[in-house]
């Protein structure tokens, strides 16, 4: 089975994340990048599926040169090879454009199963699996907390608002994973060494058949009108419980008219 995992490099959520005043894009240079948390679960799931059903795991990342750090980490976890979609024309692409670009690459490299994270910590759009499924014309098996493959049939448990759904579809398909699905492995020393020798293909827009006039900030389908850092929350009142902490909280609720 040919499994492709889409991995996004995101700024560390503990670092201060800011939009750049000029073009309101995320300042990705000034903060440390790491693999989007849920994408580690996506990689883990791909590796487990490969271990069960054989095949190959390819990491696909669209991002600046710096994103090779994340690709290396994915390879050191055990992925077999990587494709890095790297082109200045892609800078500032929104989620629709990113889904277009990734779908073009997926069309080129081929796949039986695409695995993505349910959402990223920076964009939090939560619709990549749906968008890729729509563009590629394959089943959307998203928000999976469990995946089973039997021949060409895939069944998942889909996390829903009120419980979960059992959902079935046929390969080729796109799945997205939630963090309940597994526990990502740490790269071993051997894995880290092996990663250095694994193939990494760099693709440009031209290579992938991506029309540059459809991607990038200038052609985005949405725009930021303005933005502002929220004034830090007014420091609250913190009291130490001296046997009256509950009553003090109740007084606060009364003052705020909650009770």
């Amino acid at each position: 089975m040919n499994i492709v995992v889409c991995v996004k490099q995101v700024p560390d959520t503990w670092a201060e994340r800011k939009l750049r005043p000029g073009d309101a894009t995320l300042d990705r240079e000034s903060v440390d990048g790491l693999i989007n948390e849920l994408d580690e679960y996506a990689i883990e799931e791909a590796l487990q599926l490969k271990e069960k059903h054989e095949g190959e795991v390819t990491v696909l990342t669209m991002g600046p040169a710096k994103a090779t750090e994340s690709i290396r980490k994915a390879l050191s976890m055990g992925a077999d090879k990587a494709v890095h979609l790297l082109d200045d024309a892609l800078a500032g692409s929104d989620v629709l454009q990113t889904s277009y670009a990734l779908a073009q690459v997926l069309g080129q490299i081929g796949f039986d199963l695409v695995v993505v994270g349910a959402e990223s910590t920076d964009a939090r759009m939560g619709s990549m699996a749906a968008m890729l499924a729509e563009r590629l014309g394959v089943p959307q098996l998203s928000l999976a907390s469990k995946v089973e493959i039997d021949g060409s049939s895939v069944t998942i448990h889909r996390q829903s608002e009120d419980g979960f759904w059992k959902v079935a579809g046929q390969l080729p398909a796109v799945i997205s994973v939630v963090e309940k699905i597994n526990e990502p492995r740490y790269p071993s020393f051997k894995g880290i060494m092996a990663a250095k020798k694994k193939p990494m293909q760099v693709m440009s827009c031209v290579d992938a058949g991506i029309d540059p006039s459809l991607v990038g900030l200038a052609n985005a389908s949405t725009e930021v009108v303005d933005f502002a850092e929220r004034p830090p929350r007014q420091a609250g009142t913190i009291v130490k419980d001296e046997g009256d902490g509950g009553s003090k909280a109740a007084e606060f609720l009364v003052a705020q008219k909650f009770i």
Partner: peptide, 28 residues
């Protein structure tokens, strides 16, 4: 979590919460 709190109580929840509930019941 206290960085976000408009009101915070530093204490054992098993002490604080029952007292809070009692006061809520009284006031309601």
């Amino acid at each position: 979590i206290f960085e976000l709190a408009d009101f915070g109580v530093v204490g054992d929840l098993f002490q604080v919460v029952p007292q809070l509930m009692e006061d809520i019941q009284k006031r309601s």
